[in-house]
Amino acid sequence: MVIGYKPGTTADRRRPHFIRTPEEADQLVLDSACITNLSGYLVSEGLLSDEKAVAIFLKPDGIRSINILAAEAQLNIDQILILGFDINDNQVTALEGEKVEEFATLIESIKEQAPDALKNPLLEKIEGMTPKERFTFWQKEFSRCIKCYACRQACPMCYCRRCIVDCNQPQWVNTSSHTLGNFEWNIVRAFHLSGRCVGCGNCDRACPVNIPLRLINAKMAQEVLGSFDHFAGMSHTQEPVLASFKKDDSETFIL
């Protein structure tokens, strides 16, 4: 199977295309509108269970997602063939390599640029606020949330069979779309993605009420990079940051 893009409902949209026969390949498109990270489809139930190879169109962020999924034992990298591409100034360029290991130097260079790439004027503005102002800011943002969980469905990292918000014994998060439950849901979502998010922006684009989810994810990425020098998706053997520890981790905040 090949997973790629085909034209969507409007001229600037692309939708995923799953190719099983050579004829279907005619519909494939690849242009600067192909920004969705497709790697999440690989972990959909049954797709990889026949152990046949799957080729997938991926940008560098998608390649990092594959590394994380492999590191978390969700897929076998031998089964995945990468058709890498990148978009710069609306120009699509092909990336060299087929196997995920071949992109290691590329990912290494992305990590080096990460401290600058993660910077964002709005992020810095929020950091400069008092806790009260920050709370008000997020309260306003989260009050729009309708708990459609589109952010979860769109995220390649949200593959749990049973999400914590779907559990009702005990019910951790309020299911009604009151701001309290929305607050809790968004905190939990951001926490579960800490050190795993590659910043592909799938959640941000999927949100029907435009909550700046990417901001929280970027903040958490900065945090794990600064505290643990962890950059998500470096290799398929990278230890997940919250499932590992060092004895000399900083603990200045502990009384």
């Binding site: 806790p131 920050r134 945090e223 940051v241």
Partner: peptide
């Protein structure tokens, strides 16, 4: 300890 460190930053960021 690691988990708290990350969670603490998140709480701080959300106010």
């Amino acid at each position: 300890r690691r988990r708290w460190m990350v969670f603490r930053a998140l709480l701080e960021f959300t106010g």
